[in-house]
Design a binder for these strands. Structure first.
Lengths: 233, 233
DNA sequence: TGCCGTGATCTGTGATCACAGTTAGACTGA
DNA sequence: TCAGTCTAACTGTGATCACAGATCACGGCA
C-alpha cells in the first residue's frame, strides 16, 4: 500500500476520465457554444487528428452525440450537425419552455443559500459582460449558459439537469450561430432584464414567476431567430 | 443499371441498419421490459457472444446506454444496471409525471383520427390481456408500453418522444422487476381504469384530464413500489 | 463542347490485437 | 485448518487494420 493509509483516504478520488469522455466533453462544448454550425460535416479521422487521439475515443463521443440527436448521420454515412427546420425549432422551443420552466419552478421552491449565491453571482457576471463597452461574445454565451444552469442546478435533480443539457446540445448550434450573426441581440432582446426577473422570482421562492421568467427568456430568443427567417421549411 | 428503371423507383428504400443499432435496440428492450435487473452486471464480450457479433457493435450500444444513464460503469470498470435509491426513484417519478403528463396533454389537444384509433386499440388489447384468466406478464408489460407510447406519439413531437423513451430506459428495470415479483399489481392497482380515463380524456380533447390520468397511472405504480420498500437508502 | 465512365480517396463500420487493471481461485506455507 | 500470496482469467479502453460504399475530379469519347 501507500506510505500512509490516512493520506490515501483523502486523495482517493483521482478522476480517471477516459479519452472518450474528454472527446465527448470537447465536442459537446463546441455544439452548445455554437462553434459547430448546422449542416457542418464532421469527420471522425479529422476530429481525431485535431484532438490528438486515435479515432476510437472520437467514435464513442460521436455515437453518443448521435444518440442524443445532437449530431446525425446522413444517408451517405456522413456525420454532420443537423439542420433544423423552423417547425422543428418551434417544437424544441415549446419543450424547452415546459421543461426548463419546470426546473426553474423547482429551483425557486427548493434552492439553498449556496444555490442562490451561485445564481446571483452568475447574473451579475452576465450583466457586467453585456453592459461592457465592447462585450466579448464568446464569453457572454458562456456566462448565459452558466446562469441558466446555476438556476437549473438549484432544482437538485440530476436527471432533469441531464435532460436539459441534451436540449441545449440541440439548440446550441442554432441559437449561438444566430447570435454570432446578430451580436446586437444581446442588448436588444432584453436578456438582462429577463435574467433579473428570474433571479428575483427565485429569491422570493416564487415558482410561477421563475417559470414565467425562464419561459420569456427562451421565447424571446426563439422569436427573434424565427423572425429572421434563416431556418429552412 | 438494373433491368428496369421503373422497378427501381419502387423498391428503393432498403433499410440498412447498422449492427450497433440492432445491439442497442436489443439491449434497450431488455432494460425497458425489466429483464435486466438493477445491479446486474453486463460483460461486453459476453453480450457480444450472446448477440452473435463482435464486441464493437456492443461497445457502441453500451456507451450510448451509459450516456443515457440506463447503464453505469462501476469504479472497477464493470458495467451494470444502476441500482436506484428510493430518493432517486421519487425524483424520476416526479419528472416522469411532469414530462409524460405534458405529452399526454399535447396528445389530447393535437391527436388525429389515426392516433385515436391506435390509442383505442392499444387500450383494448391491454384490457383484454389483463382481464384474461391467466394473463401473460411479459405480454402485459409490452402492451402497457404500447399504450403509453401510442398516447405520447399523438403529441407529434419526436424530441419529446425521445426524452420519454430515455426516462423509461431508467425506470424499466425497477418497475418491471417489481411487477415480476408482484404480478397481482396488474389487477390491484387499477391500471385498466386509469388507462381508460386517459383514453376518454384524449378522445374528449381534455388536456388537463389526460395529464391527470397519466399522472395517476405513474404515481400509482411508483407508490406501490415505494411502499414495498425494496429500494435502498 | 458536353457528357459519361473510372479510379483514387475519402467516409463510417466492424474485427482483431494489445494493454493495464481488477478479481477470483488455487496453491503454498505455517 | 486457516491465512496469505500469486497466478490466470477476466474487465473495459485504446490502437490498428480491413472493408464496402460514397464522393469527386480527371480523362476520353461522342
Amino acid at each position: 500500500m501507500g506510505p500512509s493509509t490516512t493520506a490515501l483516504s483523502i486523495v482517493e478520488p483521482l478522476d480517471r476520465q477516459t479519452l472518450g469522455e474528454r472527446a465527448y466533453a470537447k465536442l459537446a462544448d463546441l455544439l452548445i457554444s455554437g462553434r459547430l454550425a448546422p449542416g457542418e460535416k464532421l469527420s471522425l479521422r479529422g476530429a481525431a487528428e485535431v484532438l490528438g487521439v486515435s479515432i476510437m475515443p472520437v467514435r464513442e463521443a460521436v455515437s453518443r452525440l448521435i444518440a442524443d440527436r445532437a449530431l446525425e448521420v446522413a444517408p451517405n454515412r456522413a456525420v454532420r450537425v443537423p439542420v433544423m427546420s423552423a417547425e422543428q425549432f418551434r417544437d424544441l422551443t415549446r419543450i424547452r419552455i415546459e421543461i426548463e420552466g419546470f426546473a426553474a419552478a423547482q429551483a425557486a421552491a427548493q434552492h439553498t443559500a449556496d444555490d442562490l449565491a451561485a445564481i446571483t453571482a452568475a447574473e451579475a457576471a452576465m450583466r457586467r459582460e453585456c453592459e461592457a463597452t465592447e462585450p466579448d461574445l464568446a464569453r457572454a454565451v458562456e456566462l448565459n449558459k452558466t446562469f441558466h444552469f446555476a438556476v437549473y442546478a438549484a432544482a437538485h435533480s440530476p436527471t432533469l439537469l441531464e435532460i436539459i443539457r441534451a436540449l441545449w446540445l440541440k439548440a446550441g448550434p442554432v441559437i449561438n450561430l444566430d447570435l454570432r450573426a446578430n451580436p446586437q441581440r444581446l442588448a436588444a432582446s432584453g436578456v438582462i432584464a429577463k435574467h433579473d426577473a428570474v433571479l428575483r422570482a427565485v429569491t422570493a421562492r416564487d415558482s410561477d414567476g421563475a417559470r414565467a421568467g425562464i419561459a420569456a427568456d427562451i421565447q424571446g430568443a426563439s422569436s427573434f431567430i424565427l423572425s429572421r427567417g434563416g431556418l429552412p421549411d
